[in-house]
Amino acid sequence: MVEQAKLGDREAFTRLAFELSDHLFAVAHRILRDFDAAGDALQVTLLRIWRDLPSLRDPDRFEAWAYRVLLRACQDQLRRQNRQPRTLHLLAADAIAADPALAIVNREQLDRAFRTLTTEQRAAIVLQYYRDMSLPQIAEVLQVPIGTVRSRLHYAKRALRSAIDADSRPTTREGRTA
């Protein structure tokens, strides 16, 4: 199907689009945390996939390439909506060690905390914990070395915990976030 679509077969692309759309939308929705924005990102992604498909040299790498196109669309969405987070000052390691029990972390806290992450950090988290991708797979999608993926995940989780911790302690929150 990818090969056919690459050669300009619109019917093959239509089938491919329906096959891909659930996966792409689910990832976009988790990164953007917004249903409509995820739909817009999906629409742009499918169009860009069609437009740029002839430039894909190795059809075996289509999935990673498609996710890469999606992540760029998500990044555009976040930028355009001015949702790009401000830099979060990380808490010191000892402060994290004393973070509140995870059991009390609720969905809203996680949601707020997740929105403080950069697009790259969000992507790394979603690809690992939602898509269950390995570090080399994530590295291929993001086109960065494995070490960079590892470090993004580390800082993303640390930032999440910091934000959750700050969220749980409103009296000290102002001093900890930018």
Partner: peptide, 11 residues
């Protein structure tokens, strides 16, 4: 816990 199906209108 999130949307798993793409709304067809976008596709």
């Amino acid at each position: 816990d999130g949307a798993d199906q793409a709304p067809e209108r976008y596709v």
